[in-house]
Design a protein around this nucleic acid. Structure first.
Lengths: 129, 129
DNA sequence: GTGCTTGCAAATGCTTTGCACAAAA
DNA sequence: TTTTGTGCAAAGCATTTGCAAGCAC
């Protein structure tokens, strides 16, 4: 884990290593609060400030991604390969869909001077009525 | 405007009419704070609470949509026909793309007991380097 | 008159920041 | 030793809520 951090230009402190390990161990989409809870399961040893700072840093360095699907909080995703999301608007459950399953055609011409940063696709689900 | 509200099952009070009018007049994506400012340009006459309550109500009743692209605040969109978004991550500018320009294929099978609520597509742009 | 609406201010919840202390280079 | 990281508590912001007074039907 320390290797991975260093390879991405992040100094691997004890706290950062534990946070990154927690993210990749779950392999799932988690909120900052989830990470805070996971890292501090036994004893409280990593502060909220450090959790938030580190998550921001890991996003900057490309180790994880932000997922913006819920207006009330941000999710973090250790899967940085191209993929899309299923989001259950009732339970909050967030699931990956591999990018090669889904084909998008007809992307419009981009405005001049702009380039593509990425395409987010969120398929919203609800309980069948 | 009052007609429109009534047709959607919303009792058209003075405040709600002004809020809805402000939304549709701009025809653009706005935040709650933008609406609050627009409605109170001259004299302060609609409270924040009412702006937030009314926007929530208009979303419930299907007159407008929420757009979730920015982790720090929600945008509201008076365009409820199917369409996607271009989002400039640097300027915050949000632009519509008509749905018929873009084709999505290979949507995965939905989990049992769930149905589609909608598909959000956000094309993120950045300044070309 | 009864029930929905409004507005104020207070509360909430996620996230960021200031600053002193500790650890890394 | 000079820079970088950590933690606490406080601050910040968008949004929601409790409650009393006002309007709709």
């Amino acid at each position: 884990m320390a290797q991975l951090l260093r390879r991405h230009g992040v100094t691997p402190t004890a706290q950062r290593t534990r946070i990154a390990a927690a993210m990749f161990a779950r392999g799932m989409h988690v909120s900052a609060e989830d990470v805070y809870a996971a890292v501090n399961q036994e004893t409280t040893s990593v502060s909220r400030a450090t959790v938030y700072n580190t998550l921001r840093l890991l996003v900057e360095k490309g180790l994880i991604n932000q997922v913006i699907v819920d207006p009330s909080k941000v999710f973090y995703d250790p899967n940085v390969s191209p993929h899309y999301h299923l989001y259950d608007i009732e339970t909050g459950e967030l699931t990956d869909v591999a990018a090669d399953q889904l084909e998008i055609r007809g992307l419009p011409d981009l405005p001049p001077g702009k380039e593509l940063d990425g395409v987010d696709v969120v398929v919203r689900l609800r309980r069948r009525v």
